[in-house]
Computed example of a mutant assay.
Amino acid sequence: MVLLHGKLVVVGDMTVGKTAICHVAGNEATAYPKTYNCTNLADLVLKQIRVPDSDDTVEFFLFDSSGNSVYLDALRDVWVTMDMYCIVYDVTNRSSFKNCAMWLEQLSQSRGDHNIFGVLVGNKIDKENHRVVSTQEGKQLATSRKMGFFECSAKDNKGIGEIFKYLASEFVTRYRTRIRTLEKMARDNY
């Protein structure tokens, strides 16, 4: 059994639903936020996920980052120690999808470490009649950037759990790989 702590940075344009996703995840969907204030800089939400088919648990420190560009310089200081990221876009807003590349670049500049991983999340699938970004477009972007891909509705609590189960599983897998690598290095040096 392993208990790991991981810093998950959640980014994306304003009003794509980052705060709603974090709130629903952190509160086990007991209450969807009908109203909330725009996030200033970053809010912290804690969430524990048991890795499917194991006794391992990951405690996420979710940093819900503001989508306001005014805070970018300060956010880079928050992002520098991230273990993983979640880039969110609104499936009814093409501009928020196009800006995902910019968010990925901002995260890369902050961390400068290619060992981190992340997911691309299309939110607001409950508004299917207003969709302008297809599932295929999201999958293509995620695949080209070597990210996991998910679609969800924070409003209806659809797909949220799958995102965090994936991130937890991947985080534990990477941890175990690092441990094996270090053990091998130790054996080889003796």
Rank of each mutant, 00 (worst) to 15 (best):
K124E: 11
F150Q: 06
V121Y: 01
M82V: 10
T177R: 09
T181K: 10
L167V: 15
S95N: 05
E105D: 11
V45T: 12
L62T: 10
Y175S: 02
N93L: 08
D113E: 07
F171T: 02
C86I: 08
A74D: 07
G122Y: 10
P33D: 03
Y89R: 09
V88E: 01
G67R: 11
I160M: 01
C152T: 12
T177N: 09
M84E: 03
V51F: 04
N189L: 03
D43N: 15
V121N: 03
F149Y: 14
H5P: 00
F63K: 02
D43A: 15
N37M: 07
K184I: 04
Q48W: 06
I49K: 09
N123D: 04
V11N: 03
C86V: 12
K127Q: 14
Q106N: 11
F97A: 02
Y32F: 15
C38K: 07
E162C: 13
F149I: 11
G6F: 02
K165A: 00
K158G: 00
R76M: 14
V45E: 01
R180F: 09
K127M: 13
I179A: 10
F60G: 04
A74P: 08
A101Q: 05
L3D: 09
G148A: 14
T19R: 05
H130C: 11
A29Y: 04
L182F: 03
L141M: 15
N68V: 04
H23T: 14
L182Q: 10
M102K: 14
T57Y: 06
D55L: 14
I163H: 06
A42E: 14
M84F: 01
Y85C: 13
T181W: 03
D83S: 09
D43S: 15
N27L: 03
K127W: 00
T173E: 04
M147P: 01
